[in-house]
Design a binder for these strands. Structure first.
Lengths: 148, 148
DNA sequence: TTATCTGCAAACATTTTGCAGCGAG
DNA sequence: CTCGCTGCAAAATGTTTGCAGATAA
């Protein structure tokens, strides 16, 4: 699974204003392959295990840049650690719902432009500008609810 | 306003298994008076300004104890800081919006049953049960946007 | 009295920053 | 060649812990 690192950038992410470096390519590939929320340190460890030599600092900085560019989603653990995952709908600066199972941590990412707009308008009604929103719905997913 | 600290416990919170100390009483009173999400440090500062001498450590430990006891709600800032607020009513399963200024941390609490219902339905459409949701909209409040 | 609580200082964990050198464009 | 990117080490931040003395029960 981890045995054949090719030079070709598989899940490459081109962000205008960011240089294409090996490190970021490796990170992007990893993010694409993972698809789930991981801490910066987990990603860093994974890169190390894949033989990729990327500094933790660079992981942090790249994740931040990618988050700014709207390419990755950021979420927080209950104790405040940042979790990163490749945004399923990239490029769009829309923010999505997260439907998170509180048992298995499974995360469904939804997109509801209407609700999106609503949240936006509501914020502006109250004088808020430069608005972003986070909508997290916690519950038991079908699988876990059954197993209960 | 702050000049006459009486010995009587105004917003006292009695938690079985926890001793009633002046420090915790002061914190509880402050929480009751505040009613909004604050960081531990903000609470600590407020206590200091009220002439209450309570160590930061104690603030943290008390908040943790109160949170464990279900008396206090914990939330996280966008950058991972913990925010605490007196739990309004346990049992009510109402969830509100939080319109949070990412600069001054001001928090407008809204209630929009329609959006509430929407979120709920959406979750159930995806097979989620025992649903609760958190809707946080971050932005710059009018005041901070002006000051920019 | 005695077990818990307090508060200081020091430890911690995560994330950020300074700076010298590397490397993409 | 140049300027941004990298990575180490060191700093900054928010939070937790060890321990000696204070205090509620």
């Amino acid at each position: 699974m981890t045995g054949n690192p090719s030079e070709t950038s598989a899940g490459d992410i081109a962000v205008p204003g960011l240089r294409a470096t090996k490190q970021r390519a490796a990170l992007a590939e990893l993010l694409a392959r993972t698809g789930e929320f991981r801490t910066a340190q987990q990603l860093h460890d994974a890169l190390k295990q894949n033989g990729r030599r990327v500094g933790l600092t660079t992981v942090y900085r790249s994740l931040q840049a990618l988050a700014d560019a709207g390419e990755v989603d950021v979420r927080r653990t209950e104790d405040g650690e940042a979790l990163y995952r490749l945004c399923t709908e990239r490029g769009t600066h829309t923010h999505h719902f997260h439907l998170i199972c509180r048992n298995c941590a499974n995360d469904v990412e939804l997109d509801n432009p209407e609700m999106d707009k609503w949240a936006h308008d509501l914020a502006r009604q109250h004088g808020y500008r430069d608005v972003s929103h986070t909508i997290e719905i916690f519950g038991l997913c079908a699988g876990c609810a059954e197993r209960d």
